[in-house]
Design a protein around this nucleic acid. Structure first.
Lengths: 334, 334
DNA sequence: CCCGGTTGTGCACACGTGTGAATAATGCAT
DNA sequence: ATGCATTATTCACACGTGTGCACAACCGGG
């Protein structure tokens, strides 16, 4: 074996191809000024040595590293984990590399951004992150383009890719009314982000248009245990249908119904995120699918456009979600 | 506002502090040759300008970027997602930055490693990745130190941090015997990795030592849907206790019992990974906890040691898992 | 023969940092 | 005053790459 091949720089390739280093660089970049036969010779030499360009050096010279910072909050939430996976895959397809940080607290997010700056990332993607105001401020201070996914901020100068929560709420209202429900409740999450509120307002607005109103509203932290504790309060309202801000809340609500000593008939229940668990027969939960596939595609596409041309004007996109109907909103046979 | 602060290099700091650039570098690095008052002046200037060193340039010069490549397979598996989150947090605490790639296929893993090489990562962490042989080969070719987490390979030259699957299997056997079970089955996963097999051999060995044997064995892919389909075959064996290679398989088995028309008594069931869902009342599953907290700590510690001193000899560590007992292995009152 | 145009290649610099070697500054004893 | 030791600072180079500009080679037409 070639025990001592230590480092293979463009210099070694040039040496083997009997040619200057600049020509190697141009040949690999596809510069038309290089003749066809020398290009072939360079490619052969590069392949033989297994040359891989040093992207750190290239990044220093080009002032563009091809690294994209990704800030995420809680990977224990399967929805975030799935989104991150899709982002990583789609970034990779465009030859971008994701530097991932967890910012689950305000100062954590801020320090994550600072470190991303030090690594000269070409752009930052913030994934459903609270503390968006800190992130926006930090990115603006460092002149780094920012793409907010599923979070939006008043600022008009940042890119935003967002689900259409208002029409999702309306869609759910229509579905529940169509299934025959007449009294409605909303199981809210703790966060006061615009996105989360939009789901509720879209829901309530469409209910009103159909001549109905919200008869109960309970909010909980986004944990199964806590949601399970407050769910009985919601059930005591006797609403025939409940829209939950989150699949986790919906699962807890279903569990609460099952634990309830009075074997009352379950309300119709709709969740949000269409996580894997929703399709399991034990829950069989009707849920709103945010179309993460398309959302992440658009996010990466936007980030890529910025990396290519840094003067790309900020875009604001909206993704249409769709409803996946399952057993939890089917009229009970009994 | 300082609209045109454009770039702040160490040069600008030197200029403000009326001093040379080298002195700035040494002052920030804590070189004892720098006098105390000039150091203070440098720190003040750096703070005033908000100077953040360019880690790309530093990486080029020092031949050490502080970037660690992380290869993961499936973030939709909550166990992997949780592990990744812990890894990211602990790497950050040691001022290392994770460049994350998904290698869910053999050639995907290989290309991920190649890209990591191009970015001159200081080390590679492979997280429960199949195709470990390709990864080991690629890292060896690029002279990159590798830490395998929860996967091990015959190769003695790579670092390995692994759960003690054999003793976990024994622990489960003891627990089930103690709960009064007399006939046993194993619900296996599809993969033929040593780790997965060790769980079974540890289990069977301890059963034998106690005078029992395995009466049934069924294997399935690691998806809820597929496991649900093959579960009845396992149930038909009539075993009083089932050890599952995975929480996912255990959940599917529980679902299968519930769907079963013959309202037979459920066997005692034990899972593996202690995922969040296991603690939900609806499953209340006894499960083996691999102690991810400690496992990720040790993984990062090992990677860090390599970054500091690249001649650190390869270590092989084993983490003791523990059993979390819940309702699924409690003797039924009925 | 000379000159302008075309084509292919090489020289030298820049990106921002860390660091060995050299230099200036200072104290101290001769 | 001068030589020597110690200290504080600066000079210049290296890391590996891309690229503007100069330059060589060649060719054809006047």
């Amino acid at each position: 074996m070639d025990r001592e091949k230590k480092k293979i720089r463009s210099f070694e390739v040039a040496e083997l191809a009997q040619i200057s280093r600049s020509t190697v660089s141009r040949a690999l970049a596809g510069d038309p000024r290089i003749s066809e036969d020398t290009r072939e010779r360079v490619l052969a030499a590069a392949a033989e040595l297994g040359y891989q360009p040093n992207l750190i050096a290239r990044g220093l010279k080009n002032q563009s590293t091809g690294i994209v910072g990704v800030v995420v909050t809680d990977l224990n939430n399967p929805y975030h984990a799935h989104a991150l996976q899709l982002l990583i895959e789609k970034l990779g397809a465009r030859r971008l590399a994701p530097l991932v940080f967890v910012g689950d607290t305000a100062e954590g997010a801020e320090s994550a951004i600072e470190r991303l700056m030090s690594y000269q990332v070409d752009a930052v993607i913030a994934l459903a992150a609270p503390f968006s105001s800190q992130i926006v401020r930090a990115c603006k201070a460092g002149r780094k383009p920012l793409v907010l996914m599923n979070r939006y901020d008043g600022d008009e100068t940042v890119n935003v890719i967002c689900g259409d929560s208002i029409s999702a709420g309306a869609m759910v209202a229509d579905h529940l009314v169509g299934q025959g429900a007449r009294t409605f409740a909303y199981f809210a999450g703790e966060d006061s982000t615009t996105i989360s509120l939009d789901r509720e307002t879209g829901f309530v607005k469409r209910l009103n248009e159909n001549g109905f109103a919200l008869s109960a509203r309970v909010s909980s932290r986004y944990s199964h245990a806590h949601a399970l504790k407050v769910a009985p309060e919601l059930l005591s309202s006797g609403a025939q249908a409940v829209f939950c801000a989150n699949d986790t809340l919906a699962f807890a609500l279903i569990d609460a119904v099952r634990q309830s000593p009075a074997a009352a008939v379950s309300p119709l229940i709709v969740g949000y995120d269409n996580s894997a668990l929703a399709s399991w027969p034990i829950y069989d939960l009707t849920s709103v699918d945010q179309n993460l596939e398309e959302m992440t595609s658009l996010t990466v596409e936007t980030a890529h456009a910025i990396v290519i041309a840094s003067d790309t004007p900020p875009k604001r996109h909206t993704i249409k979600p769709y409803l996946v109907e399952r057993g939890s909103t089917r009229i009970q046979s009994a």
